[in-house]
Design a protein around this nucleic acid. Structure first.
Length: 120
RNA sequence: AGAGUUGACCAGGCAAUCGCUGGCUCUUUUGAGCGAGAGGAAAGUCCGGGCUCCACAGGACAGGGUGAUCGGUAACGCCGACCGGCCGCGAGGUCCGGGAAAGUGCAACAGAAAGCAAACCGCCGCGCACCAUUCGAGCCCCCGUCGUUAUGAGUGGGCGCGGUAAGGGUGAAACGGUGCGGUAAGAGCGCACCAGCAGCGGUGGCGACAUCGUUGGCUAGGCAAACCCCACCUGGAGCAAAGCCAAGCAGCAACCAGAGGCGGUCCGUCUCGUGACGAGUUGCGGGUAGGCUGCACGAGGCGGCGAGCAAUCGCCGUCCUAGAGAAAUGAUUGCCACCGCGCCAGCGCGGCACAAAACCCGGCUUAUCGGUCAACUCUGGGG
RNA sequence: CGGGGCGUAGCGCAAUCUGGCUAGCGCGUCUGCAUGGGGUGCAGAAGGUUGCAGGUUCAAAUCCUGUCGCCCCGA
């Protein structure tokens, strides 16, 4: 049976991890999310969130983070493996769970393609 | 029935599945089970306190804050009651409300004048005899002269001196109001009533204050959210405080004998003890970015009884109820509430606020869909 | 957590400390003249709830209180 648990091993938790992602500078975006990614040495993906104060007040920011985490949890086995992803909301977008679930795998695939091209 | 005032409270509910963060138990690698898991404002960070570290003999002055009275409180700039001004028919609301008969200062424009009073126009008296006009024969006496363009008198204007503040007009504001007397004209100049002030006394109240009597003087302007005066309060920093453990690195310079430290300043006080090291302080540089404590039993919640108008307090019983560090409550459904719209009248669709702890607590302020309850007021109708 | 600053015309700034004077200046905008047309030039005009709400005062952009938004600094 496949596990959909979401533990601390699946998250980016240090400033160094975030710096690695920003230094690689592979990103993809649509009307809902902006994703940056870089390859890690693991067999699964890890998630980092960046939701600034300009997105809204504390309730809106928490809403975004929870919806993105939930989408990542449910989609974790459908994503290209071995990526560290930093996700932030697109400026002006409103938090909607269905839109995030559709957007996340597509953008992750595009980031994975860019990472492979850059490696070659 | 309608219109309103004030206060208290709720913040959709019950389940299912997949997940998240602490706690306990089991397993002792994965994990499993049980139970807990945001608010009335958690917000803004505007006040106050607890707690921790630093400083501290004491005093004075600065600086900052508060401002009727009495009470509540750990404390407050908060709360309650009460007093006063203003608003409302009323229930109530609101102002916070010390001092301008200590001093300095400010008031554009207009106006004579903007502050201890003064006097532009005006009114009144006296003087001059310059102008106009009316009357028409003269003067204390004598002599002379003048003769209707003289002289004198009256009226009006003018000039000078003085009295006055009733009236005029300006302004946000002009030194009580009305009436009678009084006067050359006037004026608290005198009197009566009213408004208002100060002193003294009585009564009620802990008090602010209210009220009554009496005496005095007739009026004392506004702004202190201008400086200021008075009374009271007031060390600094903040949980990234602070303490412990582990890991790791590299030190350098300046200051030190009459000098240094001591809240913003001063009085004063403290430390060191004859010259260098160390310590210390300051500055520059280097290393670390891990863990634990602080950290949730507290001015605590709920219920009852009692004291008090109330804020609040006392006693008894009972309960333990979030605690992270890339940061925990979400997703998908079902049923039932509430609101709106549509129609085939019980179905469909849509909506369901403001907003999320980060050391803790007491307040204040601000945001907020909708709903419940209580007390009271006014108006209309009926009995 | 602590501290500081700023909101005035479409834009950039004065006047705020010390309350009163027509809320002013530059760029921009509009109209007219000159040109075949445009730029330039000349002449003239419009444009402001002084972020918002209360209060003090005769009078508030200015003083006081609350509130909203933005920016910066330190730990």
């Amino acid at each position: 049976m496949t596990s959909f648990r979401f533990t601390k091993e699946l998250r980016l938790r240090s400033q160094a991890d975030f710096d690695r992602v920003y230094a690689a500078d592979h990103f993809a975006a649509d009307g809902v999310l902006v994703i940056r990614g870089v390859a890690n040495e693991l067999d699964h993906c890890r998630l980092g969130l960046s939701v600034s104060r300009k997105v809204g007040n504390a309730v809106v920011r928490n809403r975004w983070k929870r919806l993105i985490r939930e989408a990542f949890r449910l989609a974790q086995h459908d994503l290209p493996p071995g990526l560290d992803l930093v996700i932030r909301p697109k400026a002006g977008a409103v938090p909607n769970f269905d839109a995030i679930r559709r957007s996340l795998p597509q953008l992750a695939a595009r980031v994975a393609k860019k990472v492979r091209q850059n490696r070659n």
